[in-house]
Structure formats: structure tokens, C-alpha cells
């Protein structure tokens, strides 16, 4: 058993330290807040914020692996949730029957997924077929998607979702909230795709060398489009979760999460230059960062200092990796 653990940590040197950091964070935060951190209220608050962050980080990770980036995830999520909100609020009136509402909600979810696919495909198409660098392509679509959302909402908040849709964020199966379950399911599915599906493996290879992968008779352009579609779908699901939790949608919600999703990916062992990254690492770094955020919140640290802290942490993680990598190679 110890042999197995040793082998695992050798193969996964990037994330081997994460379990210990996770435990340390829990211990430190519990001590610093004199136990409040582990209180039932805080834990349930934690589990309600975790899903959207987890889904958005996954959306970021799958494209960073391909040596890309997706700056439009937040604006995609918002556009999806705004369109769904409009669809539901416009079609449902006081007279609509329960059965019909169920149907409309399901149709709205389907609509959300289709829009996510389109938004992702636009990103992927600009990158793979037009040849734009991912950061600039998604910067453009970030502006565009957010602009479209603003144009649609005229800057207003759309609220008043049907009850059954809102209930999703409260409902539990075996004591686990549905959004959390959604995230866990997404982590597992994406994890399996990345580890065991040819498509997932291609993402890593493309991340290290698109040319060699293309010369190996892989349709890399189609694969890249698929990666951004996958990123778009994950962002869209995050949008749905947020829509349910806040019972409202607007153009500018969650814009501070951008940095956090990159940080979670990189801390979780995803190479910012592409080619490497695992869901397991992402899961641990997600928990670590969510715990720190929540702990700092309990301690009364302002959100701006937390923001600055994330920036420092991101640079520190990159610096640490760079430093240890040097030691390995020389």
C-alpha cells in the first residue's frame, strides 16, 4: 500500500503535495475561526458555492490542456442563463399548468445546452479554422457574448424563475445537494473522458504539439472545436446552476471568478503552457481555494484582499513549479 502511494506521488509530483495542503487548510481555518469553519451553516454555504466554481474551472482546464484558454466562460454562462431566464419567464404565465411548466423547464435546459454548444463552437471555430490565438479569440467573444447579453437585458436583472427550477438548488439526494451532485458528476465524466477516451488523450497531445498530432492523422481542428464546445457546455451548466441559485440572471454576474478558475487549474497541476493537467488535481485545488475563501470570509477579510491574494498565489504557484522543474532538469 505505501509502495503504491509512493509510486503515485512520484508519477504525480505536481499534485502530490495537494492532499497535505488541503488538510492543513482545513486545520488552520478551523483553528483560526475557533470551529466556526466546520459548523453546519458554513459547510452548507460552502457546498452551495462550490458547484459553479467547479464547473467553470473544469471549463477552463479542458482548454488550457490544449495550450489554449477560454476567457469567455463567464460571459457564456451569463448569456446562457439570461436566454434561459427570458425563455422561461416569457412562456410561463400564472395559468400555465404544472405539467406544462415541467416541459418548459426541460425545454429551457435543452435550449441552454444548444446555446452553449453554439457559443463553444464559435470559439473553437475562430481558433482552429480562422487561426486566431485562443486568448484573443476568446477575448473577442467574451466582449461579444457579454455585449449581446447587455443588449438583450438592457442592463437589467431578469428574475422570477419557476419554482421547480429554483428548487433544484435546494433539493437533495441522500443529503447531497443536487448542484453539488451535478458538479461531482461533471468531474467524473470529464475525468473519464480525459483519461480514457481517445478524444481526451488527443487534447493533451495537441497541447504539447498540434503539428505532430496533425501529422499523426488526427483531425486536430475538429478536436480543438470539440474541446471548446465541451468548455462551453460546462460553462453553460454553471450558468444554469447560478440561475437556479440566484433565481435571477444578468450580464455581469460572476466576473471576478475568471482569475479564480485559472488559478484553480494551475494550482491543480495544469500546465499553463498546455499538455498536462488532471481532474483529480483540479478537484483538490478547488477544495483548497474554496476553503481558503470561505475561511477568510469568516475571518472578515475583505473580498479585495482575497482577490489580491489569489493573484499572488497564482504567481507563487507558477514560480514554485518553475523552480522545482529547474531542480529536476539540472
Amino acid at each position: 500500500m505505501t509502495e503504491k502511494i509512493r509510486n503515485w506521488s512520484k508519477r504525480n509530483s505536481d499534485i502530490a503535495a495537494l492532499p497535505f495542503i488541503l488538510i492543513a487548510v482545513i486545520v488552520i481555518m478551523t483553528a483560526a475561526t475557533s470551529g466556526k469553519f466546520l459548523s453546519k451553516g458554513n459547510l452548507s454555504a460552502l457546498s452551495s458555492q462550490l458547484p459553479e466554481l467547479g464547473l467553470l474551472s473544469l471549463a477552463m482546464m479542458v482548454v488550457i490542456i490544449t495550450n489554449g484558454i477560454n476567457l469567455s466562460i463567464i460571459s457564456s454562462a451569463n448569456l446562457v442563463s439570461v436566454l434561459m431566464a427570458i425563455f422561461m419567464t416569457r412562456t410561463i404565465t400564472a395559468e400555465t399548468s404544472t405539467g406544462m411548466i415541467w416541459l418548459i423547464v426541460l425545454a429551457a435546459i435543452l435550449l441552454g445546452i444548444i446555446i452553449s454548444i453554439i457559443l463553444g463552437a464559435i470559439n473553437g471555430g475562430l481558433i482552429a479554422y480562422i487561426g486566431l490565438p485562443p486568448m484573443l479569440a476568446t477575448l473577442g467573444t467574451m466582449l461579444l457574448y457579454e455585449g449581446i447579453t447587455l443588449t438583450i437585458t438592457k442592463g437589467f436583472v431578469i428574475s422570477g424563475m419557476p419554482d421547480i427550477f429554483v428548487e433544484y438548488s435546494y433539493a437533495k439526494i441522500l443529503g447531497v445537494p443536487l448542484p453539488l451532485l451535478t458538479m461531482i458528476l461533471a468531474l467524473i465524466v470529464v475525468g473519464i473522458i480525459l483519461e480514457r477516451r481517445p478524444f481526451g488523450k488527443y487534447l493533451y497531445l495537441i497541447g504539447s504539439s498540434e503539428t505532430v498530432t496533425r501529422f499523426s492523422a488526427i483531425d486536430t481542428k475538429k478536436t480543438i472545436v470539440k474541446a471548446y464546445v465541451m468548455s462551453g457546455i460546462l460553462a453553460g451548466i454553471a450558468g444554469m446552476v447560478m440561475l437556479s441559485r440566484f433565481n435571477s440572471a444578468n450580464a455581469r454576474s460572476g466576473s471576478s471568478l475568471q482569475l479564480l478558475t485559472i488559478l484553480i487549474s494551475v494550482l491543480g497541476g495544469t500546465d499553463p503552457n498546455g499538455g498536462f493537467g488532471k481532474v483529480l488535481g483540479l478537484t483538490m485545488s478547488l477544495l483548497i481555494l474554496q476553503f481558503i475563501t470561505s475561511g477568510l470570509n469568516l475571518l472578515g477579510v475583505t473580498q479585495f484582499i482575497t482577490l489580491a491574494l489569489w493573484g499572488i498565489l497564482l504567481i507563487a504557484v507558477i514560480a514554485y513549479r518553475r523552480f522545482t522543474e529547474h531542480k529536476h532538469s539540472s
Binding site: L205, S208, V212, F215
Partner: peptide, 19 residues
């Protein structure tokens, strides 16, 4: 630049065409 992916494991390089 066209034949091998230097940073990726040997096993990936050997099997990429036949996943």
C-alpha cells in the same frame, strides 16, 4: 517538429495513431 511530441510520454507517442 512533425514526428515526436518531446514532452509527452513514450507510450502516447507510440500509440497516438491507434487510440
Amino acid at each position: 517538429s512533425q514526428g515526436v511530441i518531446l514532452d509527452q510520454p513514450i507510450i502516447e507517442n507510440l500509440t497516438v495513431t491507434v487510440f
